[in-house]
Design a protein around this nucleic acid. Structure first.
Length: 382
DNA sequence: GTAGGGTTAG
């Protein structure tokens, strides 16, 4: 196993110094907008009250996805005090003694960018008579990651095992490695990789996928390829997500690898490209101004029974507009509306304007009409 | 419970 370490070290030491690309911190927990329109505010208040009422039913409290959807909606509207209201009120139910239930609340706080609240709830678990295990520890780590408090992930990971009697497991390491990757600290990610091996944990496919995704995304294609080889040396087989990371990577910098080569390699190994694979190719070629090749892969996507989604349309339609292919853009719009895809108004607007410039007034007004009568879209054009 | 793309409502 130590040979793995030295080989991995070699992968990183050969690498060009990282242009540390850290995602901008989204200030999710910022102050909510004061100029909120009353009707929306009232609607959300009603939602909160209805939700809290429903929670009285123990069966309702098992519905994980409704919790998630409700909280996500409040978070999108930046109604953080409503989120607090909803989640804190859960403490009065005996469900809170079930670790999985408390964990859910912690992760909802994390997804809402409310890490302080997540942490507080974790601290309160003992007094709420809820047992804490390595699982809740990992949920707290993930909550910090979701809230983009990357430094907190590291801090908690290093301090907690000392204070609370939990030992980090494979999941914990994977989350910390992810966090270092988000920070652009590949060397630290690497030392975590070593440390987990030292503690008798084998890096898993997820560990590799996490690292590979970060390397390819940051234009470190060669380092990615070396790590890939090493992974296969450990008899860990790549899956479709590993390949998708690589597909995204071939468009960043001069990777020197063709999309067709990767796709045929996947086919040889019996790994079916999925929607994310095709979207990666479409995005890659659109970004490079090669609409023709992007459309080829759009065709492949359909041939292979994938359903184009928001990402597909939102990539292809503007690219068609830029290339002056208004008829294709128009047809894609029709399809997107038919499929009830939630495209932004600006995407349609662009096509309408382009059609008008090309004196295709019939199509332009037809598109306006269709958008305005689409029940799934909550805006009107013109 | 950990890994993907630009994402999510009544």
């Amino acid at each position: 196993m130590s040979s793995v370490n030295s080989r991995l070290r070699a992968i990183f030491s050969k690498s060009v110094p990282a242009k540390t690309k850290v995602k901008p911190k989204s200030n999710v927990a910022a102050k909510s907008s004061d100029i909120s329109a009353f009707p929306e505010e009232t609607k959300l208040l009603k939602l909160v009250n209805k939700f809290k009422k429903s929670c009285e039913d123990p069966k309702f409290r098992c519905k994980h996805s409704i919790y998630r959807r409700t909280v996500r909606r409040l978070a999108n509207a930046k109604k953080f005090s409503m989120i607090e209201d909803v989640l804190e009120s859960q403490k009065k139910y005996d469900s809170i003694r079930v670790e999985g239930f408390a964990n859910r609340l912690i992760s909802l706080y994390g997804e809402s960018g409310m890490f302080e609240h997540a942490h507080k709830l974790f601290d309160e678990m003992p007094e709420l008579n809820c047992e804490r295990t390595v699982k809740s520890f990992n949920v707290l780590l993930k909550a910090a990651l979701d809230a983009k408090k990357f430094d907190k992930v590291v801090e908690i990971f290093k301090e907690f095992p000392l204070r609370v009697s939990v030992e980090p497991d494979l999941f914990s390491y994977n989350i910390v490695i992810h966090s270092f990757c988000e920070m652009g600290s590949f060397d630290d990610a690497l030392s975590m990789f070593h440390e987990m091996e030292g503690n008798g944990m084998e890096p898993s496919l997820i560990t590799y996928n996490t690292l590979l995704n970060a390397l390819y995304r940051n234009g470190k294609f060669l380092e990615g390829e070396r790590l890939w080889t090493m992974m296969e040396g450990e008899n860990i087989a790549p899956d479709v997500r590993t390949y998708n990371a690589r597909l995204r990577g071939i468009f960043i910098g001069d990777a020197g690898l063709e999309a067709d080569e990767v796709i045929s390699e996947m086919e040889r190994k019996g790994i079916k490209p999925d929607l994310v694979s095709y979207n990666a190719l479409i995005k890659g070629f659109c970004d490079g101004g090669n609409l023709k090749e992007a459309m080829k892969w759009y065709g492949e996507l359909q041939k292979n029974n994938c359903r184009p989604d928001l990402v597909t349309f939102a990539t292809l339609i503007p690219a068609c507009c830029n290339a002056g292919d208004l008829v294709v853009a128009y047809e894609l719009c029709l399809k997107a509306i038919d499929r009830r895809v939630l495209l932004k108004a600006a995407v349609f607007k662009n096509v309408v304007d382009g059609l008008a410039r090309k004196v295709k007034y019939d199509e332009a007004s037809e598109l306006v009409k269709l958008v305005n009568s689409a029940s799934h879209l909550n805006y009107k054009l013109e």
